[in-house]
Design a protein around this nucleic acid. Structure first.
Length: 113
DNA sequence: CCCTTGACTATCT
DNA sequence: GAGATAGCCAAGG
C-alpha cells in the first residue's frame, strides 16, 4: 500500500467517523476536511479499503443523491439507515439533516404558502 | 509510458 | 432541472 493511501485513508476515515448522527457529508466535503481538496473520487476507495466500522451511509453526493445505483442492495440499505436516523429524502435526494418538528412544514412545503 | 476506471463535481445546455 | 461535458487524480493493467 502506497504512502499516499496510508495517510489519505487515515484522514478520511477520521472525518467520516466524526459525522454526527442524522447528518450527511458529500465526498468532496470530506476530501476537503481531510486536507485533500481535489480527491473526492478517492474517498470512495478509502471507504472500500476500510476495515473499521464507519457510518458510510452518511456519505452522499454533493447534489444530495446517493452514489449507488437505484436498485442496488447498497442503495436501499443506505436509504433505510438514513431515514432511520431522521434524514429526510425527497425524490431520491437528501433534503435535510434531522430537524425540529417546527421546521418540517417549512422544509416540506416551503417557506411560502 | 499510455489508457482506463471510478461510491465525484462544477458548469453549461 | 435532467443530461452532457470537461476537469479531477491515484491505481492498476
Amino acid at each position: 500500500m502506497s504512502l499516499f493511501q496510508a495517510r489519505f485513508d487515515e484522514a478520511v476515515w477520521q472525518i467520516i467517523a466524526n459525522i454526527p448522527l442524522g447528518q450527511v457529508m458529500a465526498y468532496g466535503e470530506i476530501a476537503r476536511a481531510a486536507g485533500f481538496p481535489r480527491h473526492s473520487r478517492m474517498v470512495s476507495k478509502a471507504m472500500s479499503r476500510s476495515t473499521k466500522k464507519l457510518p458510510w451511509h452518511r456519505v452522499i453526493r454533493s447534489d444530495g443523491s446517493l452514489a449507488f445505483p437505484l436498485k442496488s442492495e447498497e442503495y436501499e440499505t443506505q436509504k433505510a439507515r438514513l431515514m432511520s436516523e431522521g434524514v429526510l429524502m425527497l425524490n431520491g435526494k437528501v433534503s435535510a439533516a434531522k430537524t425540529e418538528p417546527d421546521d418540517l412544514d417549512a422544509l416540506i412545503w416551503g417557506p411560502e404558502s
